[in-house]
Amino acid sequence: MRSVRVIPCLDVDGGRVVKGVNFVDLRDAGDPVELARRYDEEGADELVFLDITASSDSRETTIDMVRHTAEEVFIPFTVGGGIRSVEDARAILRAGADKVSVNTAAVERPDLIGELAAEFGEQCVVVAVDGRRNSEVDSGFEVFIHGGRTPTGLDAVKWATRADQMGAGEILLTSMDSDGTRDGFDIPMLLAVGGAVSVPLIASGGVGNLDHLVAGAVEGLADAVLAASIFHFGEHTIAAAKAHMATAGVSVRPVGS
C-alpha cells in the first residue's frame, strides 16, 4: 500500500529554530532538538531541517545539532542548506542524518547529484526544487535558486526529470508563488513535476489548513506533504493533521502505531 508522509520542516539559523515557534509547553521552542522530539512524539513521519545560515562557520553548529537530534529522535530526518560536496554530505550523514537535501549547488553543478548517489545511495539524496510560475518556460514553471531569489531560466519539470535521472532519490518541490500565502499547494505544478519523475515527490509551500494537506495528496498526488507554520504556531498538531487526512481517505501511518 501507499501511505502519505507528513513532514514538518524546521528552518534553523545558527543552531536555533527560526520562524516563530509557538508551543506553549516547550521549555525552549528555539531548540531544534527539543522541537524535533516533540514532532516525533506527535507522530511526524519524517523531519526536514533547513539550515538557512549555511555559512561556513556555522557548519560545526549544524553538525552538532544533527548529532544531538540523532541521539533523541528515532524517525528519519533530512538536512539541507549549504551542502556543496560529497564531503559536506558525509559530515552530515556521519553525524546521524538520513538524507541530505541539495538545491542551489545541484543547479550550479548537476554532477553533484550523481556523486552523492554513488557514494551514499540514491535514498540519501533529496533534490529540492524551488519553482515559480513563468509562462516563458515550456512547462510554465521556472526553477529559482538562492532561496528563491535568483531565476535560472531552467524549466522545473525538465530539471526535476534530469535530477531524477542523475540519481535523486526524492524531489522536494516548493512553490515560490504559494510559499507563505497559506492558500494551499500549487497543484498543477505538483502534477506536472510528479508526472514526469519516477521517484517520490514531497509537496511544499502554501499550506494554511488541513484540507490543503489532503489536496496535496489527493489532487497533487504527492507522496509526502511538508508544512512549517501550521505546525509551528500550534494551530494544528501532527495528530490532528493525520486524523483529518485519514477521514478524507488518505492512507497515513496512525499516530502511536
Binding site: 508522509r5 513521519d45 535514498q123 519516477s198 521517484v199 501511518r253 502505531s257
Partner: peptide, 27 residues
C-alpha cells in the same frame, strides 16, 4: 513508485520473538 520510501504496515506471518509486544499491523 520505486524506491519504496515510506512507512508501511507489517504483516507478521510468524509470531516471531522479534515482534513480541508490537501492535497489530505495526508501521
Amino acid at each position: 513508485k520505486c524506491p519504496q520510501m515510506q512507512w508501511n504496515r507489517l504483516d507478521i506471518t510468524d509470531g516471531d520473538a522479534l515482534f513480541a509486544g508490537l501492535p497489530d499491523a505495526a508501521w
